[in-house]
């Protein structure tokens, strides 16, 4: 148990150090997120009523897209320089190592989206309560995106056009998260009870946490053959 935890921390620390030394990669995804969100008002017009209504959906879809962009990097760099091969030979369950990689990936690509949300929410004239709920759902939902996306990233490892294929595989699987995430914000705005949305998202998070690292580990073994 202790060695498992040690392995988890080692992988998280390693990937965070690597991300810090390749800051540009991380930043481009964030800039993409901000840019996509800011393009919507230009596309549909500046009426605050409409923007307020659209905001949760726009932010969530932008978060989905930018996480698809960053997921391509989850395993590919390690695959190209051979470190992934060595990770498959680690004398510990591979799913633990995968969990560590997903966790650090979320910290550099999911968590910043949550932190950027208040600023972008103000662009869309969202109320404080709605922004708070949006942050909460993104906080619960972006880890799910990273986990489900990890399966796609592992399956498309080293393939031509892997990035587009990854989105094609993963986006349909992420629809429930999108629905519950935006639904919760709309429920807050219309004064309804949000506990159902949040508990469903929590359930999805637990489900993903239990199954996806193992499935991703299997996918990696298939892709490394």
């Amino acid at each position: 148990m202790k060695t498992l935890f040690y392995l988890l921390m080692l992988v998280v620390r390693r990937d965070l150090i690597l991300a810090m030394r390749r800051r540009a990669d991380v930043l481009t995804t964030l800039i993409f997120f901000v840019m996509v969100v800011s393009l919507f008002p230009l596309g549909v017009g500046p009426e605050t009523d409409m923007l307020r209504k659209m905001a949760p959906g726009v932010l969530w879809v932008a978060a989905l897209l930018s996480s698809m962009l960053s997921l391509g990097r989850l395993f590919s760099a390690d695959y190209l320089d051979g470190t992934l091969e060595q990770m498959l030979l680690v004398p510990q369950p591979l799913s633990m190592l995968v969990l560590g990689k997903i966790a650090s990936h979320w910290m550099v690509s999911g968590l910043p989206l949550v932190l950027l949300t208040p600023v972008l929410g103000l662009q869309f004239d969202m109320s404080i309560a709605a922004i708070g709920m949006l942050m909460l759902t993104l906080l619960l939902g972006t880890p799910i995106l990273s986990m489900v996306g990890a399966i796609g990233a592992a399956l498309t490892l080293g393939l031509r056009g892997g990035g587009v294929l990854l989105s094609l595989l993963v986006l349909p699987l992420c629809i429930p998260v999108l629905i519950f995430g935006t639904g919760a914000v709309q429920a807050v705005v219309s004064g309804m009870n949000v506990s159902a949305h949040l508990s469903l998202m929590g359930a999805l998070l637990v489900l993903a946490l239990v199954f996806t690292p193992w499935v991703t580990a299997q996918a990696l073994r298939i892709s490394m053959e």
Partner: peptide
């Protein structure tokens, strides 16, 4: 195959959420 299995686990969740 792995994708199809993940998909079939997801289909009920997707249907319910929609």
């Amino acid at each position: 195959a792995l994708l199809a299995i993940v998909g079939s686990v997801n289909v009920p969740i997707i249907y319910f959420s929609v």
